[in-house]
Nucleic acid binder design. Structure first.
Lengths: 172, 172
DNA sequence: CAACAATTGTTGTCGTCAACAACAATATTT
DNA sequence: AAATATTGTTGTTGACGACAACAATTGTTG
């Protein structure tokens, strides 16, 4: 029953470089004609991927002056809200590999934003804290992140953004 | 006005490995206590990233038997809907680097799902087509992708999924 | 028409990132 | 005390995006 429904249904909007007009002049400007996406429209994953790329790019652009990327921001935020956490706890909470968190913290520690304090209750683990500079910086980062969030609201609409946050609340 | 709201507000739920009970027995099972996310809740990017990871993992899992990943699926879908497209056109439409598309097509061509046909109107470019096997396979992939989409609907709710698709329609 | 510029596919490099595996130091369990 | 598990660390692998360079071909312009 699925023998010939798939392919012939959408042959119309193609003809991207199959010749069609007579004048060969507008040739290489017309391949931005609509290219059918067929099944991709209606796939949540595709839309979400594109949206996520846009969001990250805007975040990076908006926080470019302070050179903070989304993952770094999430790490700083979690440590700021829960000082003393171990690396394992932070990694688990944010869904990062603990191996990856090592490098993230190396960088943040080099920039004097975070300190690894030897935990006295478990000499294997480090208690993570923001430095004074880290706390002050994080406040500034949050202002810029809020500006980024306004960009999102402008892009998709404020109430759409609210709705989206409610829909995805289970994933935070 | 954001001088001291950030850090002291959420010190309560921490104590991950700060000792708290007397019995040292449940120690390393209790660090999955709530860890405050503070500012991260309310950031669209964070929720979208987590959601996107979940979606991709489910897609990969659901299509594991046929060994097709999201990007491969999108390439096959676009070629299937628009046979004869050039690599540039596909790359532009999907937002992939044309350098990256080369490897994707190499793999799909090795699996006899896609053919690069020399275009006669422009001897630089290739006209992309699904093979007969590619068309048959794509029909099967679409069935599995629909099953994945049902997983998404189960996860966030069918009408929430519809709403989300409408909100993000501008990004497809 | 001839020189120049642009496009297409390809190859390669670089940096980011997730997923593992292995390891030493330390904690927990038996 | 011996066996087992956890934490932080290092290293490897593969997927991925961003670039740069290149040959072949096409388009443009004087």
């Amino acid at each position: 029953m699925s023998s010939r429904a798939a392919q012939p249904a959408l042959k119309a909007p193609v003809s991207a470089n199959g010749k069609r007009g007579g004048n060969g002049k507008a040739r290489h400007q017309e391949q931005d004609i609509e290219v059918g996406l067929d099944g991709l429209v209606g796939h949540a994953g595709y839309a979400v991927r594109r949206f996520q790329i846009w969001i990250f790019q805007d975040f990076i652009r908006t926080l470019a002056a302070v050179d903070i990327k989304p993952t770094q921001y999430s790490v700083l935020t979690v440590i700021g809200a829960n000082p003393g956490l171990s690396q394992m706890a932070v990694a688990k909470r944010l869904g990062i590999e603990r191996a990856r968190l090592v490098h993230l913290l190396d960088s943040l520690e080099d920039r004097k934003l975070v300190r690894r304090v030897q935990s006295r209750t478990d000499r294997r683990s480090h208690a993570l804290h923001l430095t004074a500079r880290g706390q002050a910086s994080l406040r500034q980062f949050k202002l810029l992140a809020a500006e980024h969030e306004r960009h999102v609201a402008e892009k998709i609409g404020a109430e759409n953004r609210e709705h989206l946050l409610r829909i995805l609340a289970a994933f935070t």
